[in-house]
Design a protein around this nucleic acid. Structure first.
Length: 285
DNA sequence: CAACCGCCCTGGGTGC
DNA sequence: TGCACCCAGGGCGGTT
């Protein structure tokens, strides 16, 4: 389940391997992998061939390779992988897209078991500070690794939300890049119960929550990301090492690292929250 | 505009 | 061994 640290790890790996290379050939193997590309498979392939990669950009969980006026957007979804594989490597069972380069070096191979991820070409539009974003990424808020994020303004906005704090944390239009794993870890670090109303946090608490999220994701990035269920790997196919540092996620029944009370897992909008019932007491209502 | 719900989809795991 | 079922979950479209 790639979140901000994992997607940033992939971005760095891609940047190191595809920058300055020219696309020579594109093959797609599953319609869902390019379903977001409105003008179809032929257009997708035709428009990519001949393009030279300048850099690899990212906001939240969205990656893109910007060209002059458009960009190739990559989203990993929950099981997407970008791997650099030998040009003669056999087709992987869940291989969805393969991009070959004019230098006949390693291919960029998109593998995705659950097909929530995919690629699309989209126009670039100018936004603030002279930045250019793909049109379909403009609604995504800045992430916590973005040097231009305004942490205080984000904390204030979080407190205006009439919803549970974890929902707000997962809302990519408020702050992007946080998924279920790092939301649970950040809430544990900040000692906040996930179903506490966002509006009930003090401003200081809201700031410390965002700071905790930033810290935990920075640590994860330094270790190459988390690999909880082996679906996430970097472009070389290697797992990250942060999984061992998770305090609550996936640790139901194990002792809280702070107070030794068993970690509890509870239902949260068709998924799960992991928390310490003592460190993160439920709000009274 | 904000919140919420249901849907997309696959395959590993589990229970019978 | 096989089958039915559950579960993971980010983003988005439609609705309230």
């Amino acid at each position: 389940m790639p979140e901000l640290p994992e997607v940033e790890t992939v971005r760095r790996g891609l940047a190191a391997h595809v920058t300055d290379r020219t696309i020579a050939e594109v093959a797609t193997f599953h319609p869902r992998a390019i379903r977001r590309h409105q003008s179809g498979k032929k257009d997708f392939v035709r428009r990519l061939v001949g393009r030279k990669v300048e850099l690899v950009d990212r906001r939240g969980k969205f990656l893109w390779l910007p060209f002059e006026s458009d960009a190739l957007i990559i989203h990993l979804g929950m099981s997407g992988q970008c791997l650099m594989l030998k040009s003669d490597s056999p087709k992987h069972r869940h291989e969805r897209i393969r991009i070959k380069f004019a230098d006949s070096g390693d291919d960029l191979v998109f593998i995705d078991q659950r097909t929530f991820g995919g690629m699309q070409l989209d126009e670039l539009v100018a936004t603030e500070y002279g930045e250019k974003l793909p049109n379909s990424v403009t609604h995504i808020a800045r992430d916590l690794f973005d040097p231009r994020i305004d942490l205080l303004a984000t904390a204030k906005k979080l407190r205006t939300r009439n919803t549970e704090v974890k929902r707000a944390l997962l809302d990519q239009t408020l702050v992007s890049g946080i998924g279920n794993i790092y939301a649970d870890e950040a809430l544990w670090l900040a000692r906040i119960n996930p179903i506490k109303p966002a509006s009930s946090l003090t401003l200081g608490k809201a700031v410390s929550l965002l700071t905790a999220a930033n810290e935990v994701m920075k640590s994860a990035l330094a270790q190459g990301g988390t690999s909880f269920d082996s679906l996430y790997v970097n472009v070389n196919g290697e797992s990250g090492y942060f999984g061992r540092d998770l305090n609550v996620y996936g640790r139901e029944g194990e002792p809280c690292p702070r107070c030794a009370r068993p970690i509890r897992r509870q239902k949260f909008t068709n998924r799960s929250s992991h928390l310490c019932p003592r460190c993160q007491p439920a709000p009274k209502r």
